[in-house]
Design a protein around this nucleic acid. Structure first.
Lengths: 123, 123
DNA sequence: ATGTGTGCAAACAGTTTGCAAGCTT
DNA sequence: AAGCTTGCAAACTGTTTGCACACAT
């Protein structure tokens, strides 16, 4: 995706301004408001290419559809509500160990840490 | 899944003794060795029910199939290798903040923290 | 003018469901 | 005997791909 198209611009803008991770369907629904006739396949194609170029990152929450959010370079802390299933992107916190990282009002019941990198066999 | 069947027993044993998160296909392939004629649907049915009863937890890694692992009650730290795409379940560490949690030999390039709980609106 | 990006529809992969038969209780 | 569980195949959902046309370069 190296050319400037209306579709690409709108899709990126939607993700950038969402402030939380969106599912492919949500991205598409929001983007269609600006470009009617936008095909779902185009949305998927852009999500893939934006992910590959690291402008967008995928966030997965078991048992739920994948979500995508703007990659601002910072590592992320997310909060998944077990009641409403919404996903929140939390502000970069103090760097405390996980259970302490949620702001007031969020009741943490458990956490999962995923580290990315190179394993001993591959390194 | 309240009855004791050969299939259920084998599937749980496979997950318990894997020591790392397995995809549904991996679970099925390993279980078939003990119960030939085991249907893939049965594997999915047990994964779902084991997850619902919290004996097993799902671990997702964007762009990869879902994985399931034995839930021993502890919160988990996982390491995803960007070269071979394998997933490792790391020992429960010191409780340090994420970048410091990997044992020697693992080169951490980034991390993702997922907190589970109840959000302010639902709480 | 060239060739990438798009929309559409068809193809796909992974997961779920309906059903008759088998097994556990 | 009652009814949960299984295997099979068909149905579904979410994602990808082939193709002809449109548009950015």
């Amino acid at each position: 995706m190296k050319r400037n198209t209306k579709q690409g611009e709108v899709i990126l803008t939607v993700i950038k301004s969402a402030g939380r991770p969106l599912t492919p369907l949500e991205v598409h629904e929001l983007a269609v408001k600006k470009v009617s006739r936008l095909g779902i396949a185009t949305t998927y194609r852009h999500l893939k290419s934006l992910t590959e170029s690291n402008q967008v990152v995928g966030v997965d929450y078991p048992g739920q559809p994948p979500r995508y959010e703007w990659a601002d370079g910072k590592d992320k802390v997310h909060f998944a509500c077990r009641s409403c299933d919404k996903l929140f992107a939390l502000e970069d916190t103090t760097g405390d160990a996980p259970p302490a990282e949620a702001p007031e009002g969020f009741r943490v019941q458990g956490f999962e840490v995923m580290l990315y990198g190179i394993c001993p066999e591959c390194g």
